[in-house]
Design a protein around this nucleic acid. Structure first.
Lengths: 165, 165
DNA sequence: ACCATATATCTTGATATCAAGATATTTTGA
DNA sequence: TCAAAATATCTTGATATCAAGATATATGGT
């Protein structure tokens, strides 16, 4: 419980080397980063079972949860997933090559496209999401429901404050 | 406070499309991921002022906080920073080219090296860490000290449970 | 109607990362 | 002592990402 973890050791080292620095925030941000890294690696294993990774799962899931007709523009997808246009172009190329999405010219705007789930893409994401949710449940099982809710509230406030800054 | 954020909208969409799924963990993990992404981007701006990025800062800071003689093997650095050997080789090449580290053959083990901060590397990281800590303080300023401590405790337990799994 | 500006997307070039395998050296066990 | 296994590091090949710039189309103001 109170045992020193990897991050505590880092803070102790800094305190000894640079006692002038306030390293408390470093502890919080360091754990956040390391936790995220561990969580991502675990989730990637589940995605890999379905031939997916973070990027491809992200796009397919965004289209799936949108509901019928399971279609968005690349710009909408960029906004949802926080990546640049070059990254989204690349992701869509891969997914199109794999036959998981289809693209049609946007009839309402000659500059753009609409990206939609193919039948194959729909079937795949609808199956993968079940395994993904199970993995996530397992990952948070070290916290009680109440602790998870507390964490949720703190993260929500934190995220809100950072995105406003 | 209670306003719907980006993650809440995602959960609502899933609930409507797939009411069979328990998406509560997805909220927590989604906020963690998005928060980490926002935080990293902000910290990168500070590192860039010193010609550094996440990778190079990470290595230099690890050597600096180690204390005299500011030296570790590539393997030690890999363990501290959670990257593969190929990644560490690449990082060290860049840092050596920039004159921020020096490498000598490990006299005690002919297979390995010791990586140490150059004078230039020491001066740079000792300056950059001050700005970095200031940025971190600003990033967490949306939480009270008590909230930050609470978050810290929850993250610590969470991290511990995930790394054990 | 027309031009300037904004928008949607793609292209290019550079960097970081990983997994798998290669090489050199050390350690272990019979 | 010596062969087998372990370890430390590097190399290779593939992928994902970003920033900056290019191209095509749309929109707004005159």
């Amino acid at each position: 419980m109170n045992a020193m973890d990897h991050v505590d050791k880092i803070l102790t080292q800094w305190q000894q080397q640079r006692p002038d620095l306030n390293v408390a925030p470093m502890g919080t941000l360091g754990r956040l980063k390391r936790l995220n890294q561990s969580l991502m690696r675990r989730m990637e294993q589940t995605w890999a079972v379905y031939g997916l990774n973070d990027s491809s799962f992200d796009v397919l899931a965004t289209l799936r949860r949108e509901g019928p007709p399971y279609a968005l523009s690349p710009s909408d997808l960029m906004a949802s997933t926080m990546v640049t246009s070059g990254t989204m172009t690349h992701r869509l190329q891969q997914l199109e090559k794999a036959g998981l999405i289809e693209r049609v010219k946007n009839p309402a705007d000659g500059r753009g496209f609409l990206i939609s789930l193919s039948e194959k893409g729909f079937a795949l994401i609808d199956e993968a999401i079940v395994a993904h949710v199970e993995t996530q449940a397992e990952l948070v099982s070290g916290l009680s429901d109440e602790q998870r809710a507390q964490l949720d509230a703190l993260l929500k406030q934190f995220l809100n404050s950072v995105e406003k800054q």
